[in-house]
Design a binder for these strands. Structure first.
Lengths: 365, 365
DNA sequence: GATGCGGAAGAAAGCGCTTGCTATACAGAT
DNA sequence: ATCTGTATAGCAAGCGCTTTCTTCCGCATC
């Protein structure tokens, strides 16, 4: 049915080996022959069979991208930039370049492992894991083992927005986000405005991103002498006046979390949310409670997602250069750019002060 | 290096054919043999080579998804639901199920064709084209031809959010969005509020989505006797008091478009934007001009993207069930659900009235 | 005019799997 | 005791490409 190399070869009056060589351009072929083959390819509308090629050459045109949910702008931005980067061939020739296989894990460890198997099955050229890692000893070990295997078989691995995996060998490159630093500067900003009762609607438990942002938050508080310094790894103390609740990175978690926070401490003057999406939920909850932002309560997000600047009021947040990170991950996963020293780069985050934060009102409520 | 079927066969003391049969479960194998093979697979951590399988079985685990930009929530929502749907195997068994290859075309016809070639190369099991089509005779013909070829070679094709391709044979299923109806109801809503000077920051020219939304808009105006009925296919008349400008689906296009609109007719009392993202830009521009929404100018979006409800003020818009559509496209592209009659379904859109639209203020500005 | 050499093309052996066909074995039927 | 039928398992031929090794040809070299 389909046109094969042999058909093209017959038409051009050469062997299939020669056609293959013309197509790949990795072996000298006389100019006239090349022309003849080219013409035959065009006339027959020949399209190579990628699977056959991959099998024979032990190569692959696929790069896997694991995300929590590609509909979440955080991941969408990374995935989009990554896809664009790898699609552009080395010589910017269209038709070279790899295809991105996007996998929604929903944050589930099992799904993560399942997709890694599926990508191993496809003998993917590379795999990029994005977003925070689930911090579970067993799961981390399982993922590390799978990644080590993949790496050993030639698949390039890049972690984007998650902490490095020390036990997996040096083959794994990491692009980490400075969540801790960003969170710290964010909370410092609130403290410097005069806030002291700062609530926290944090992300899911056992997530590296959650932990890092919380650590930054705590460090800022500690620097102001507001909370005892707690040894690393220890549970964050849920202090009166600085309550912490956990939820997801979605709007409704923010909404529910804000209500719970208000129950724990009705006098909070500021709330830092898990991310911008959750922050929108926080704002909505406050509005529904008749509290104004930032008049009664200041609210801060994280990530600086595109919609944040248009929220009401515009969200104070921490910007992460997600697209740059995604593009860089793409270059790294193809080996198109050299890995950073130590196989790990940390991308800086930037505090974006906007309308949703202001000094606390001195008045009682 | 890698473990192959033959290795497993040797370990289990059977032929590779038997191993293949156990793995695929499509041929009777004695229970004891099956057990032995299963054990060997587990002990060797065997993962089948998808490319070899695909080549031999003339099958594929890949489904292509063409989007403008997966970072755009409109496409992200569709792609996400689609991916989730196809990843779940027929028997909900993980490990069955297909992988989604996401391709950002950026709305470029050439990119669209390039990706179709790449997907043909991979012998994709299916391809889903999402979002409005570029309405160019030549390009439509080229795409139609390519899709017909793909369909002929067994690749299932689904169009999601774009008009059907009549000349491509019946193999192509279409899920169309009722953009026209939605736009019409939206403009009717504005008219019924009393608006008569309604500006339009429309999407890109030559895009089916843009055309349909504009047609709905125009139909509503015509029904109010506000614009002459214009024959289909004719250019939309840019009437004084009802100016139309074109741009992209992004925020800055909305911003610039709004400014241009105000230049054309400083007295507009309402603006309908190309979509919600552009609407945010429109609101920002109005704000920067010192105009309040909806006090001075009402603004409406389209799509009901997740952030729209949290905008300031909440956007009146037209809801498209993007996730449902994406999931349905996933089912259709795998042949898991039967195509609708006529190979075409239109999904209804719903007017969402929120705070960004209100009756025009009687006062002069 | 025999020899050697480099450039260009072909023959053919896989890559790792699926699957049609064949072979074997044992049960029941004749 | 022979024949037929029904399970299982194996053989081997591909699937469409890449790539090594060989062959072939023309030309400069001695």
């Amino acid at each position: 049915m389909a046109v094969t190399l042999a058909d093209v070869a017959a038409r051009a009056g050469v062997s299939s080996a020669t056609v293959s060589r013309v197509l790949n351009g990795n072996y000298p072929v006389a100019g006239s022959t090349r022309e003849r083959v080219r013409r035959a390819v065009a006339e027959l509308d020949y399209v190579v069979n990628g699977q056959a090629r991959a099998l024979a050459a032990a190569s692959s045109d696929l790069v896997g991208v694991l995300v929590n949910d590609v509909a979440d702008p955080f991941f969408g931005l990374i995935a989009s930039a990554l896809q664009r980067e790898i699609a552009a061939g080395p010589g910017r020739l269209p038709g070279d370049g790899k295809l991105a296989v996007v996998c929604n894990t929903g944050g589930s460890p099992e799904a993560e492992l399942t997709y890694l198997t599926l990508l191993e099955r496809q003998r993917a050229a590379g795999v990029v894991l994005t977003g925070g890692a689930v911090e579970d000893r067993q799961h981390t070990a399982a993922v590390t083992a799978r990644l080590a295997r993949l790496a050993a078989s030639g698949t390039r691995i890049v972690l984007c927005g998650r902490p490095p995996l020390p036990d997996a060998g040096a083959e794994i490159t990491t692009i980490a986000f400075d969540n801790r630093g960003g969170a710290r500067r964010l909370t410092e900003h609130l403290l410097s405005l005069g806030h002291r009762r700062i609530g926290c609607v944090a992300g899911p438990l056992e997530r590296s991103t959650t932990r890092h942002r919380l650590e930054g938050h705590r460090a800022a508080l500690a620097a102001y002498g507001l909370a005892p310094e707690v040894a690393a790894g220890e549970e964050f103390r849920d202090l009166p006046g600085r309550p912490v609740v956990h939820g997801g990175y979605d709007r409704s978690s923010g909404y529910d979390g804000a209500l719970e926070l208000l129950r724990k401490d009705p006098a909070v003057t500021a709330i830092v949310a898990a991310n911008d999406t959750a922050a929108l939920g926080v704002c909505a909850a406050l509005r529904d409670r008749g509290l104004s932002v930032p008049g009664d309560v200041s609210v801060a997000g994280f990530d600086d997602l595109p919609f944040s600047v248009d929220a009401a009021p515009a969200l104070t947040t921490v910007r992460i250069p997600l697209q740059e990170a995604g593009a860089r991950a793409g270059r790294l996963v193809l080996g198109r750019s050299a890995p950073p020293p130590g196989a790990m780069a940390t991308v800086a985050t930037e505090l974006m002060v906007r309308g949703s934060t202001a000094p606390p009102s001195g008045s009682a409520r």
